[in-house]
Design a protein around this nucleic acid. Structure first.
Length: 680
RNA sequence: CGCGGCGUAGAGCAGCGGUAGCUCGUGAGGUUCAUUCCCUCAAGGUCGCAGGUUCGAGUCCUGCCGCCGCAACCA
């Protein structure tokens, strides 16, 4: 890192307080930000990690309305869950606050006022759709209607997803409010806009010329925006939930959340440093890093910097914005509304004491360059074959041997042999790479480096074989174990940013005291003569049962979603009674039922149809055990021509209802009837 | 023709003009202090597709396809 900086301010995207946080938030923002912050602290640098809940905006008011509570109730609920679960995961925020705080309200107000006084806004009056029943203007997404281009009935106010056209809400035919279903009316409204175009040239110089080292996804996105030309952007909204616009003539208007939220970074900093916060924002020797997800790139690289430049007063722009891509879950996009997520607070409940495992897996599989997939099998494998088998096992080997041969007292190192020196050299090389990777935000690669320390340790033990040396040369055993113990201490330091809970336990067991990055690789981290604690497993295997429970939970949710989203098929073309009459539907009793060999779906039925017996094949083997159908009555079409399937002739068709998930349920009379009865 | 990113072994990634690699997983053998690590060997890839440049292309060029995102309060 550039040494011209005296301190680093790390911000994390503000999670929206209309739901708990999930693994996507963690992998994209909070875990990487925490890794970086912890690393900087180990380096002895002055660093502050700020975060907070984003608590304003329309979705919160809608959720409150739906639940019959106040918006404040909603944000109080989720802010608490979010804050507590972050803390339990060890995200080391120096402050985690919220945008409903007084200090934020004052800060955001002042920010707006200053821009207003400086003439940094333009004002525009326009016609917007207003929902009279809800008593509010409708943001684009809260209007649906018919697309004027393709006449799709379900177009949104900003875009038609069927034809992809961008729309204005006022273009829609037959607009409807998504909140109340009412037909909105046009009403005049007045808003303040930040003319981003005024800052285009400065932004170009700052990003395109000055920050070519940014990640390609970030740089490319910025270049694209700048090349297209920037437009003025509204900073106010007609709403009653938010920071009121501090102008007499703006009663009933609030700051638009995207104006409001990033100022939260500033107000949260003020909250911890009421007297000295300015040096964290206005001193050129402060380095600001914004950790965000890819959807936020334009706000952090274009909009917020333009706001800061418009404000002036020496506000510093971010030095880097390491945006991550997205994490998927078991192959599907994470979705709050579809409950398709691993929620942090539920993970902490289901896997107590396993914060490090989640942190490790999310880092090893972080979506740094492209979207990645989280699967529970991968989670289990990484825990069992990496954390347990490589790292935990190595530390365990060393501590067990130390207790076995030296009663747990750190033995003195004798003269070093080539292999010992080679080990220390390898650790040094790893440290160089590890440091470089963290500094450049390549945390996935950095974690691999850290793991290589344990791999090197395992290899060293295998090659020196202290358990064999113990029979001939205890001095040499002492040297080997001393070296191996130093490697354990290296692990405690190197892993602190990634898995802080394990690191703390290991450091305590080895009596290391305060950890420091500079000491990583030193040869006397563990003090000779010190008695280390009895071995304790750092990681435990995760058994199939725990994983299966999670996989089953997701399968259940998937099924619930299918049922929830089920819409009956459109009615078929009209027919008449004569046509129906031609079909002969009858009731029969199942005499025999068995799976057809080599067939996945087919069951062979022998049916008593009142006249005799007939064989019918039906493709429902995936939904029924053959024996459960024997003796039951079913309905079947009796007058279809016979048909050969898998070499067997089927004399009819058993009727089933098709469920939303594609599962089948056979049709039967509600009470027993005589075999051969007709249905009609 | 909107823009940006991505598409390399079962999974996660590196390679960016010169014999296709790393970690984990899989199979076989050796070793065993240990929550089975380490070693050896093996299987597994037409490097999204199609053209082109070149003595030679995951690597450069052109065109396509797929996935994700894009001033919607979605990390």
């Amino acid at each position: 890192m550039d040494n011209k900086y005296k301190r680093t301010l790390i911000t994390t995207a503000l999670p929206y307080a209309n739901g708990p946080v999930h693994i996507g938030h963690l992998a994209g923002v909070y875990v990487p930000a925490d890794i970086y912050a912890r690393y900087m602290r180990l380096q002895g640098r002055d660093v502050t990690l700020v975060g907070g809940s984003d608590e304003h905006g329309v979705p919160i008011t809608i959720k409150a309305r739906n639940e019959g509570v106040t918006p404040q109730d909603i944000v109080d609920r989720y802010h608490t869950i979010i804050k507590d679960s972050f803390e339990e995961l060890g995200i080391s925020f120096d402050v985690y606050s919220r945008t409903t705080s007084d200090i934020h309200r004052a800060t955001a107000s002042e920010f707006f006022s200053r821009l207003h006084k400086k003439g940094e806004f333009v004002e525009k009056t326009s016609m917007q759709l207003y929902d009279e029943k809800a008593g509010q203007f409708l943001a684009d997404r809260y209007v649906t209607g018919e697309c004027p281009h393709c006449h799709n009935q379900r177009a949104y106010g900003d875009q038609c997803e069927a034809c992809g056209t961008s729309l204005n809400a006022t273009d829609l035919i037959n607009p409807k409010s998504a909140i109340t279903g009412e037909t909105p009316v046009l009403r005049e409204t007045h808003h303040w806009f930040l003319p981003l175009d005024r800052w285009e040239q400065k932004l170009r110089e700052w990003i395109l010329d000055g920050h070519q080292e940014w990640k390609v996804n970030v740089y490319g996105q910025c270049k694209s925006w700048l090349d297209l030309g920037l437009q003025p952007r509204a900073v106010t909204r007609d709403l009653d939930w938010g920071v009121p616009v501090p102008l007499q003539e703006a009663a009933g208007k609030v700051l638009y959340v995207w104006f409001d939220a990033p100022i939260g970074y500033i107000s949260n900093t003020k909250e911890i440093y009421p007297d000295t916060w300015e040096k964290w924002w206005k001193d050129p020797e402060t380095r600001i890093i914004n950790f965000i997800g890819k959807d936020n790139i334009v706000f952090h690289c274009i909009v917020f910097p333009a706001m800061l430049m418009a404000y002036g007063d020496n506000f510093q722009l971010p030095d880097n914005v390491p945006a991550n891509e997205f994490l998927n879950l078991e192959g599907d996009k994470i979705s709050t509304s579809r409950n398709w997520a691993v929620w942090l607070h539920e993970y902490l409940r289901d896997f107590p004491g396993k914060q490090d495992v989640l942190r490790y897996v999310l880092t090893a599989n972080a979506p740094e360059t492209k979207d990645n997939d989280f699967t529970w099998r991968d989670f289990q494998t990484r825990n069992n074959s990496e954390l347990v088998a490589i790292l935990g096992n190595f530390v365990n080997r060393v501590t067990v041997l130390t207790h076995k041969y030296f009663e747990g007292v750190v033995p003195a190192a004798g003269e070093l042999q080539d292999i010992d020196v080679a080990l220390f050299n390898e650790i040094d090389a790893i440290k160089t790479s590890l440091t470089e990777n963290i500094e450049t935000f390549h945390f996935r690669e950095a974690l691999k480096d850290a793991m290589n320390i344990a791999r090197a340790g395992n290899k060293y033990l295998q090659e020196t074989e202290p358990w064999k040396l113990a029979k001939t040369d205890m001095n040499r055993v002492a040297t080997v174990l001393n070296a191996a113990l130093q490697v354990c201490a290296d692990i405690a330091i190197a892993f602190e940013p990634f898995t802080p809970f394990m690191s703390r336990r290991l450091a305590d067991a080895l009596h290391l005291g305060k950890l420091s990055w500079a000491e990583l690789g030193s040869r006397n981290l563990v003090t000779e003569g010190e008695r280390i604690d009895t071995p304790e497993l750092l990681f435990e295997k995760i058994e199939d049962e725990a994983i299966n429970a999670q996989v089953e939970r997701l399968a259940r949710i998937k099924k619930e979603n299918e049922l929830k989203n089920f819409t009956p098929a459109a009615q078929k073309a009209a027919t008449d009674f004569e046509t129906f009459e031609k079909i002969d539907i009858r009731v029969g009793t199942v005499i025999e039922c068995e799976k057809v060999k080599k067939s996945k779906k087919l069951l062979r039925f022998l049916i008593n149809d009142g006249m005799g017996e007939r064989t019918i094949l039906s493709g429902i083997a995936e939904y029924y055990q053959p024996e459960e159908l024997v003796g039951r009555q079913v309905c079947f079409i009796a007058n279809f021509p016979p048909r050969q399937m898998m070499g067997i002739e089927s004399q009819g068709m058993i009727l089933s209802a098709v469920n939303a998930d594609g599962s089948l349920s056979v049709i039967a009379p509600s009470a027993s009837v005589v075999n051969g009865s007709q249905v009609g």
